[in-house]
C-alpha cells in the first residue's frame, strides 16, 4: 500500500457508502421493500405493535450501551456492542414502519426522541438499571429468548415489512440468546461468587416475567429455554412472582424517565438542529 494513495483517498469523494460501518448506512433502511399495507391489516394495531417492539429494542440497546468501556473483558465489550447495535437497527426499522402506517409520515427520530416515558410501550424488564454482569446476562437471556420466539411468529405476519424485519431479527436474536446462554452456564457453574450473583439476578428478573406474555403467549418456549440453561448452569428455575402493571400499557418503573432524559437530552436541547 502506498502512503500517498491512502492520504489522497481521504480527501476524495466517496460513493461506496455501503462499506461504512455496519448498521450505519445512509439509505432508508426499508429501501426497496413494498411498504403498502395489505388490505385487511389494521394499521392502528400494526403501528402499536411496531412501536412496542421498537421501544423494547431501543431501551435494551441503551442499557447495553451503558456497558461501553465498563465490560469485564474486551471480548465482552465487542459482543455487547454487537448486540446493542443489532437491537438499535431493529428499533430503527420498526420506528420507520410506524411512521409509514400511522398516517403521520414521521421519521424514526420523532418516536425515539420526542415521546415521553408515558408514551413508551416497552416491557419493564428492559428498562431496569444495568446492575452487574450477571443481571445483564440473565436479562439478555430472558429478553432474547422471548423476542426470538415472538419474531419467529411475526415472520409470517401479513404485513410484509414487519415480516421482513422479524425474519432479519431472528438471525440476530439467535446469536444474542446463544451468547447469553453460554455466559449463564459459565457464571452459574463458575465460582461460588458468580453462582450467588446469578441466583440473585434470576430473583431480580422473575417479577417482570409475567408481562412479557400478555402480548404474545410464547411462555412455553421461553420456559423451555430457561429450564435447559439453568439446568446446565446448576441454577434453580426462577420462581414466578407476578408484579402488577405492564410497560405495554404505559406503566413503567421509576427508571425509564431518567434513561429517556439522557437519551433525548441533546436532541431536545436543540430541536431545530439537523444531525
Amino acid at each position: 500500500m502506498s502512503d500517498e494513495h491512502v492520504y489522497l483517498s481521504l480527501a476524495e469523494g466517496h460513493e461506496d457508502d455501503a462499506r461504512w460501518a455496519y448498521g450505519t448506512g445512509f439509505e432508508d433502511p426499508l429501501h426497496g421493500v413494498d411498504t403498502t399495507v395489505p388490505e385487511g391489516v389494521d394499521t392502528g394495531q400494526l403501528a402499536a405493535e411496531c412501536v412496542a417492539l421498537a421501544d423494547d429494542a431501543l431501551v435494551s440497546a441503551q442499557r447495553l450501551a451503558e456497558w461501553t468501556t465498563r465490560a469485564p473483558e474486551l471480548e465482552e465489550e465487542v459482543a455487547l456492542a454487537n448486540i446493542g447495535l443489532d437491537l438499535l437497527g431493529q428499533a430503527r426499522l420498526l420506528y420507520s414502519r410506524v411512521g409509514q402506517v400511522d398516517g403521520t409520515g414521521r421519521g424514526e427520530d420523532a418516536y425515539a426522541y420526542f415521546r415521553d416515558a408515558d408514551d413508551f410501550r416497552n416491557v419493564r424488564l428492559a428498562e431496569l438499571p444495568g446492575g452487574d454482569f450477571a443481571f445483564s446476562i440473565v436479562r439478555l437471556l430472558v429478553l432474547s429468548s422471548w423476542r426470538l420466539a415472538h419474531f419467529e411468529r411475526l415472520a409470517d405476519h401479513p404485513d410484509p415489512v414487519l415480516a421482513a424485519i422479524a425474519a432479519k431479527g431472528v438471525k440476530e436474536l439467535t446469536y444474542h440468546r446463544q451468547y447469553a446462554a453460554e455466559w449463564a452456564v459459565r457464571l452459574g457453574d463458575g465460582t461460588e461468587e458468580s453462582h450467588r450473583r446469578m441466583r440473585r439476578a434470576l430473583e431480580q428478573v422473575a417479577p417482570y416475567f409475567g408481562e412479557l406474555f400478555t402480548a404474545c403467549d410464547v411462555r412455553d418456549e421461553v420456559a423451555a429455554v430457561l429450564r435447559q440453561v439453568t439446568e446446565a448452569a446448576g441454577l434453580p428455575m426462577p420462581v414466578y412472582r407476578p408484579l402488577p402493571g405492564a410497560g405495554r400499557s404505559g406503566e413503567h418503573t421509576e427508571h425509564l424517565a431518567p434513561l429517556l432524559t439522557e437519551l433525548q437530552s441533546v436532541a431536545r436541547a436543540l430541536p431545530e438542529a439537523t444531525w
Binding site: 448498521g23 450505519t24 450501551a65 436543540l270
Partner: peptide, 17 residues
C-alpha cells in the same frame, strides 16, 4: 447514550466498538 439521532447513535456505537 446521548447521540441526538438514531443514525448518529449507531455510527458512534459501531465506531467505539
Amino acid at each position: 447514550t446521548r447521540a441526538p439521532s438514531l443514525r448518529r447513535k449507531a455510527i458512534l456505537f459501531a465506531k467505539v466498538q
